[in-house]
Each structure stands twice: as structure tokens, then as C-alpha cells.
Amino acid sequence: MSSPFSINGGACVAMRGKNCVAIACDLRLGLQSLTVSNNFPKIFQYSPTAFLGLTGLATDVSTVSELFRYKVNMYRLREERDIAPKTFAQLVSSSLYERRFGPWFVSPVVAGIDGKSGAPFICGFDSIGCIDYAADFIVSGTASDQLFGTCEGLWEPDLEPDDLFETISQALLNAVDRDALSGWGAHVYIIEKDKVTKRLLKGRQD
């Protein structure tokens, strides 16, 4: 319980669909069993179609999200283009490994669509930047065990955006209901080639 990864709680999941991806997180910020806030989103946008989910120690979620905001803004100014999800994933990896012997206590998830080819892309990382590429889904956070279960049960290949939204929402909601440290509402992003839909799920408030 005193692992830095499970002090504040939180959950995040990304899924691949047909020409689309989805990423979702819960909104809880806690101190052990005590809930402090139900308005602490863990998904951040870094280009029109590149998103990063961060679970783990809340202070590092904030610090790391701000660090990447800085790095991606500098990239955009220097290169006069938006960062591609695959490139962003490599940036996340190298930035985390830079802290190999004093890591940020976060478990990142990247989801996005390549601006040029339109190919969906998702991947996850450990806290020192090892990339976990996946063709189906990526889970992270204190509800990751539960998310593995719900995702294994609900996900299927080539889901259309609307079906993917239903699948990821049910996977997240039912996983966080089985985790005491996650929940209290959710953000769900459905990312298509030139459209991003963000939905707020109320979820159980108890």
C-alpha cells in the first residue's frame, strides 16, 4: 500500500478499433483510502491525434504531463509540425529512461492516429520507459488487474468508433467499480483520423 504507484490510485485504458483508437481514465485523486478529489483527469492531449494517459503518483502525473507539454511544444516550434503518436511514444520512452535510477512513478499509455497514414496506434510503458506495443488494448493503474479482465472479456477486433466507445466505457467502469482506489467518474476519448470525441462519464460516486 505504500508503493508510490498506489498512494493516489487511478486507472487508464487504451483500445484499438477500426481506423480509430480510444483512451479513457478515471477521475479519482486519493490519499490511500481517503478520496480527496473527483476531478483529477489523467489523460493529456499533445497533438490533434496524440494522447497520453498517466497513472501512478499524482505529483508525477502532473510533473510528467507538464514536462511533455514543454517537450512537445518545443518539437512543434522547431519542426513546424505536430508530433506523430509513434514519435511521441519514443519521446516518452527516452524521457522516462533518462530517469532510470530515480524514476517518475507513472505508468504511461499512448494512444493516437498517425496523421499521414491514418494508422491507429496504442502502446504502454513501464516507469523506466520500456515500450509495450499492443494490437488490442493497454491498461495501467491500480485497477490494471481488473482492466485486464474486463478488456479480455469485452474487446474484439475492428470495432467502429461508437462500439469502441461502449466497449472501453464498460471495461473501465466495471473495472474501477472493483477497485477501491479508482473510479469517481471517467473521461473517454474516441480518436478518429480527423475527429476527436471527448465524453464525460459520471460513474458511481460512492
Binding site: 485523486l29 490519499l31 481517503l34 480527496v36 478529489s37 476531478n39 483529477f40 503518483l57 499524482a58 505529483t59
Partner: peptide
């Protein structure tokens, strides 16, 4: 609400220490 770990959240109401419970 900001704790010593530098976790920060905007909140409608907040407490620190035992007062939270």
C-alpha cells in the same frame, strides 16, 4: 489542495490532516 508530495487538485472544499476524516 496541495500535499507535501506536490499532488495538487482544484477542489470545492478541502481539509488537511485529521480534519479530513
Amino acid at each position: 489542495w496541495i500535499d507535501y508530495l506536490a499532488s495538487s487538485a482544484p477542489v470545492p472544499y478541502a481539509a488537511h490532516g485529521y480534519a479530513q476524516y
